[in-house]
């Protein structure tokens, strides 16, 4: 028996667990309840409610990805320079929260931002007016940044650590300023890590329904919330699949864009 056949269980599994399910989405997305072909489910993204949910999801995902990058890039550079403990230990501290259940991490912010929560407890204690942060888009962005920051830090850190220090020293020796070194040496060489960090934050942020549900109080709908509701409460698989197809277009687009930056795939997490 050829060793090639060892792969058969895996191929069967891919067919049943990946290919058929994707065909299901395509099938339901392009049919109506009676099974007749229609593009109505996909086109319904243009409807006011759905378009707004998609737009808000894109906007919040972009904002949180940008914030994660702005926080993570200087951090990676500082960690590269510093001699704080052993190399592995510092980065370990920064990605440790990633290993804790992300629902618990999101719940923590719910507790902190809650009307009767700690922030407002401190504010009223100081005689200041209470803030209504919970159930706003700002709370959702905060939750996204908190949950996904380690996914930005890790790939950027990995590529920044690979940059040869002698390149940087050579640039200084040749009279480059700090800004010039950053722009012409460090930034271009960290592009693969930045690209994979952006994918790892943007895609989960764009498609989340958990963070928006927990920190948005169920009143702010992102595209993920709409899709989830179609499958749980309204049981309209056709509409849910149609909207998922539209969402997948955005995922594929962003990945295609970013994979051109990370051509060798060298910055992958594993």
């Amino acid at each position: 028996m050829s060793r090639r056949y060892f792969a058969s269980p895996f191929i069967v599994w891919i067919a049943a667990g990946t290919v058929i399910p994707l065909i299901m989405i395509a099938y339901y997305g392009f049919t109506d309840r009676s099974g007749a072909f229609t593009i109505e489910n996909v086109v319904s993204i243009m409807g006011a409610e759905h378009a707004q949910a998609l737009w808000l999801a894109l906007l919040l995902a972009l904002i949180s990805t940008a914030i994660c990058f702005v926080l993570a890039f200087p951090l990676a550079l500082i960690l590269k320079d510093s001699r704080l403990g052993t190399k592995g230990f510092m980065i370990f501290i920064f990605v440790l929260p990633m290993w804790m259940n992300f629902l618990l991490r999101t719940m923590a912010w719910q507790v902190i931002l809650e009307r009767g929560g700690i922030i407002n407890g401190i504010l009223t204690g100081l005689g200041l007016p209470a803030l209504d942060i919970i159930n706003t888009p700002a709370a959702i962005v905060l939750g996204m940044v908190y949950d996904f920051l380690p996914f930005m830090v890790l790939p950027i850190y990995n590529t920044v650590m690979k940059i040869d220090n002698s390149l940087i020293e050579a640039a200084y020796d040749l009279g480059a300023t700090k800004g010039k070194v950053l722009r012409s040496i460090i930034l271009p060489l960290s592009v693969p890590g930045i690209a994979s960090g952006i994918t790892m934050v943007f895609v989960p942020a764009l498609t989340t329904f958990v963070i928006s549900n927990m920190l948005g109080g169920g009143k702010i709908n992102l595209i993920g919330n709409i899709i989830e509701q179609e499958f749980t409460t309204s049981s309209n698989w056709n509409l849910g699949s149609g909207l998922s197809l539209v969402m997948m277009i955005f995922i594929v687009l962003s990945m295609a864009l970013l994979s051109r930056l990370d051509k060798n795939g060298e910055a992958s997490l594993i």
């Binding site: 792969a7 191929i11 891919i14 049943a16 667990g17 990946t18 290919v19 058929i20 399910p21 994707l22 299901m24 989405i25 339901y28 895609v203 989960p204 764009l206 498609t207 329904f209 993920g224 899709i227 989830e228 499958f231 698989w237 849910g240 699949s241 998922s244 969402m247 997948m248 995922i251 990945m255």
Partner: peptide
């Protein structure tokens, strides 16, 4: 080809993986 298929669940959004599997089971 096989590795490309292998990567689909890694790159796909969790929610899409979830709903597509749910529909497949029920169908």
């Amino acid at each position: 080809v096989i590795m490309a298929f292998n990567n689909i669940p890694l790159l796909n959004a969790d929610i899409v993986t979830g709903i597509s599997l749910m529909m497949t089971f029920l169908v």
